[in-house]
C-alpha cells in the first residue's frame, strides 16, 4: 500500500508498504530517517518515540497505514520544531539557537534544540541509543511544563529506558534545559 504523511514539516510518500509495517519501520527503512531507534518493538522502552500530531507516541506501535494524512516529528526534526516554538513565543535567546558552520563529520555547528544541547553539556549521552526517544519525550514535557519538579521529570520520562547512564545525567540535562529555557523566556 501507499502511505502519504508529513514528517518534520515535509510531505512524504512511502510506496509498497507491507500492511504490517510500523511507522518506525517506514521512517527508518523507507524514508531514510533512522534517528528513531528500534530497541524493543513492544512499547516498553520509548527509544522510538516520535510526535504524532503533536503527541509523543511509540512509533513501533503505530501501524504505517494509521499515519495517512498525519504529521510526525522525529528527532531529526526536533531542532526545527523547538526553534519554531521558541520563535512563536518570542524566545530567540536559547544558547544554541544560532546556526554555526556545520562540520559534516561531527555535526558541530548544527542547530540544536535546547534539550539536545543540554544532553550534550550534561553528559546525558553515552551509547546514545535511548537518546532520540528521550529527547522527543523531554522536549514535549518542557513544552507542557516549563518548570518541572524532579518527580515530574521522572514521571514524564518513565516510558524511556536507558541502560548506560543510571539516569542521573539525564535528570541534570532536563533540569539544565528547563533552567536555560526560563532564563531565555
Amino acid at each position: 500500500m501507499r502511505v502519504n504523511f508529513t514528517v518534520n514539516g515535509r510531505p512524504q510518500e512511502a510506496d509498497d508498504v507491507w500492511e504490517g509495517e510500523s511507522l518506525l519501520y517506514v521512517l527508518r527503512e523507507r524514508l531514510g530517517l533512522p534517528g528513531s531507534k528500534n530497541a524493543c518493538e513492544q512499547g516498553e522502552c520509548g527509544s522510538c518515540t516520535v510526535r504524532l500530531d503533536g503527541v509523543p507516541v511509540c512509533s513501533c506501535l503505530v501501524a504505517a497505514g494509521q499515519v495517512e494524512g498525519r504529521e510526525v516529528v522525529t528527532v531529526e526534526g526536533l531542532a526545527d520544531y523547538a526553534g519554531q516554538r521558541s520563535c512563536g513565543t518570542g524566545d530567540r535567546t536559547s544558547p544554541s539557537g544560532t546556526a554555526r558552520d556545520t562540520d559534516s563529520q561531527t555535526g558541530e555547528g548544527t542547530r540544536l534544540a535546547p534539550i539536545q544541547q543540554a544532553f550534550i553539556d550534561a553528559g546525558a549521552v553515552q551509547c546514545g541509543f535511548c537518546t532520540p526517544g528521550l529527547l522527543v519525550a523531554a522536549d514535549e514535557m518542557l513544552e507542557r511544563n516549563p518548570d518541572p519538579t524532579d518527580a515530574d521529570i521522572r514521571e514524564a520520562l518513565s516510558g524511556n529506558l536507558c541502560r548506560c547512564t543510571g539516569y542521573e545525567k539525564i535528570m541534570d540535562a532536563v533540569r539544565l534545559a528547563a533552567a536555560r529555557q526560563s532564563e531565555g523566556a
Binding site: 520509548g46 509523543p56 506501535l61
Partner: peptide, 8 residues
C-alpha cells in the same frame, strides 16, 4: 504502561 502508550 508509559506516557507514550497512555497518549494513544
Amino acid at each position: 504502561a508509559s506516557p507514550q502508550i497512555r497518549n494513544r
